[in-house]
Design a protein around this nucleic acid. Structure first.
Ligand code: SF4
Ligand code: SF4
Lengths: 153, 153
DNA sequence: GCCAATCGGACCGAACTGGTCCGATTTGAG
DNA sequence: CTCAAATCGGACCAGTTCGGTCCGATTGGC
């Protein structure tokens, strides 16, 4: 129940990118020294985030990366899924590979889908714009998490 | 963002234990062949759950384990914490070991505590009694998850 | 046409997880 | 009282994934 360091660093880097969104194109080096993430790790993260479609990348001299969407349209769930694959608490929730030995007669399996959507909803209710803002501001914007209750009903 | 197989198996085993709660003491062997979990793994899980206080264990012939609390008082968060340690999405949330290199000037750190409590609340709102019930029954009992909204406000 | 800067993917070592095993301890029977 | 069976408890080891590092491919500028 602990997300990988890569995902954490990705959130930090994207938050920094969201702050300096209006400025010119960012590159992995600048992002690394701005956040403190080791440069090679930042490069790998830029690659993954670009492949996932969260960053628009341009190669060559003067190239770099840019947020492909406004910060308010990027959620924590998007970032985590981009870095460490689909969010699936158990293997049977992941539709691709359902290779659990107990798959046949497991009584708990039907419930996991609901719980999985609950935590996914909690993560999807946090936008990148909120993470980039100061912690003490805009508390009432947290309302979308009420959607979690709907999922479980 | 995927919980370990041990935690998953622990949930399956405790669900099975909750179903046959009124009967006599259960042992690891019976629980294993009832759920399909490999016997050595079931033994290890029984040990951890007992150490965490979720199961009352009795050694010797005719011994076994028993739920220490009613199924409605055991939540998913309890089980996961018992098996794979405290729920902390990032290392800085875990108060014990705050050994992150970016700890000093990380702008995202204050937000993680809120998000962490949100997902923890989502997991704590699912009781073992609900997992043991059939998936189509008692849907309105999902209301406690509304507490997640309170945490974020 | 050449060069420099940047992304992209391949490679390797370390840590953790998951699985297996055997010993410590207690009860019940004889 | 002694023995033996049964059970929990913790130590041990292989497999896999994660995190970090490196170099090559590609593009734009001069
Ligand atoms: S089928 Fe049951 S044991 Fe297997 S992954 Fe799903 S919930 Fe877990
Ligand atoms: S201090 Fe920042 S980078 Fe470090 S664990 Fe916390 S959120 Fe992640």
């Amino acid at each position: 129940m602990r997300l990988s360091s890569l995902a954490d660093y990705a959130v930090v880097m994207l938050t920094a990118a969201a702050r300096s969104c209006g400025t010119a194109r960012l590159n992995a080096t600048l992002l690394a020294e701005q956040t403190g993430v080791p440069l090679p790790t930042a490069q790998k993260l830029v690659s993954r985030l670009s492949a996932a479609g969260l960053l628009e990348s341009a190669r060559g001299t003067g190239g770099g990366v840019r947020l492909s969407r406004p910060p308010s349209a990027i959620t924590l769930a998007d970032i985590i899924e981009a870095v460490e694959g689909p969010i699936a608490l158990t293997t049977c929730v992941d539709l691709e590979r359902h290779d659990c030995a107990l798959d046949g007669h497991c009584q708990v399996k039907p419930h996991w889908g609901i719980v999985n959507e609950a935590v996914r909803g909690a993560l999807a209710s946090v936008s990148l714009a909120r993470l980039a803002s100061l912690p003490s501001s805009d508390h009432r914007a947290a309302m979308p998490v009420m959607a979690v209750a709907e999922v479980l009903n």
